[in-house]
């Protein structure tokens, strides 16, 4: 293999890592947001990914069959809405009653994830599905060093950046963002300031779930949607926020990039053991900086 080929390979691996990181960031930022304010380790976060994927697909498929150009966008909107509603209901009906009891909440969300997985299987069957991206973002684009590269995966990076910037603006420039940050500091005092904290909690849960929903549709466009992905994306969200630092948008981005790159690098260099690399990073972070790279102590 010549030097040029190696350069190309390296560039491709990095680009693959970044597109994967983009997806991980979108999904994990919702997880991190919910944990940041609510202190809920939402073990059903991966289920929200599946809910968005399947509901979105149910809307997408009939439209796509009729060659409607906005089929994918409709699926995206439906998937986000479904995840947001599911998240809001989860907080309102189940978790809100046990605020502050973190272990109980974690157990309840595990229960929810098991029920959700079975219900989705009963409802939609076990066949994998995959969205087809609209023409505008389908096909391939020439990228220097890499050559032809799927356009949608580049769009994926764009969406992740947009999500990150929007989330930053929301948290730092809006009234809701002020409430969320104040609530992370001192929930009780925020309530004493006249803010309906339980309602803010439902809003945050819906927002975090919606982010996971975006991930669900994007992810199921880049790769097939199938049972078992709830567990995969929950695990990835956990690793990403542990590495990057819980409750920090920038930390989540750093964690996602590290995990995404490590996964692709591992698959290229030592495919059999690639999974280990991700966990080596996690263990190293836990040993050296337990609060995460950008987490607050």
């Amino acid at each position: 293999m010549g030097v040029n080929d190696r350069m190309d390979l390296a560039a491709t691996i990095v680009l693959n890592g970044l597109t994967l990181a983009a997806l991980y960031f979108i999904v994990a930022s919702g997880f991190s947001l919910i944990f940041g304010l609510m202190r809920v380790v939402n073990m059903a976060h991966g289920s929200l990914y599946l809910v968005a994927g399947y509901v979105g697909y149910a809307v997408f498929e009939p439209l796509y069959d009729r060659d409607v150009w906005w089929a994918w966008y409709a699926g995206l909107a439906a998937g986000i809405a479904a995840a947001a509603i599911a998240g809001a209901l989860m907080q309102k009906l189940l978790l809100g009653w046990m605020q502050g009891q973190e272990l109980r909440q974690a157990l309840v969300t595990i229960g929810v994830s098991i029920i959700a997985a079975d219900q989705l299987l009963a409802l939609y069957g076990g066949n994998p599905r995959q969205f087809f991206a609209p023409d505008a973002i389908f096909g391939s684009t020439q990228v220097p060093l890499v050559g032809g590269y799927p356009t949608f995966r580049l769009v994926q990076i764009g969406i992740a950046v947009a999500v990150g910037v929007s989330l930053w603006l929301l948290l730092n420039r809006t009234r809701l963002g002020m409430m969320i940050r104040a609530g992370v500091d001192d929930r009780e005092m925020l309530g004493a300031c006249g803010v309906n904290v339980p309602l803010v909690g439902v809003a945050v849960f819906a927002l975090g779930a919606a982010l996971c929903g975006i991930g669900g549709i994007i992810g199921s466009t880049a790769q097939p949607l199938a049972m078992g992905q709830d567990g995969r994306f929950l695990l990835i969200s956990l690793v990403v926020v542990i590495v990057g630092g819980m409750g920090s948008v920038t930390g989540t981005a750093v964690g996602a990039v590290l995990v995404g790159l490590a996964e692709q690098l591992g698959q290229a260099l030592f495919p059999t053991y690639s999974v280990i690399l991700t966990f080596v990073i996690m263990v190293a972070v836990l040993a050296l900086r337990p609060q995460g790279i950008l987490g607050r102590a």
Partner: peptide
């Protein structure tokens, strides 16, 4: 009543230790 309702009915608290929000 929930704290936010008490606050909206017209009770404001200046708590011991101030409890200002570090992130704001």
């Amino acid at each position: 009543l929930a704290p936010y309702r008490v606050a909206r009915l017209g009770v404001a608290l200046v708590p011991q230790g101030r409890r200002t929000f570090p992130s704001l």
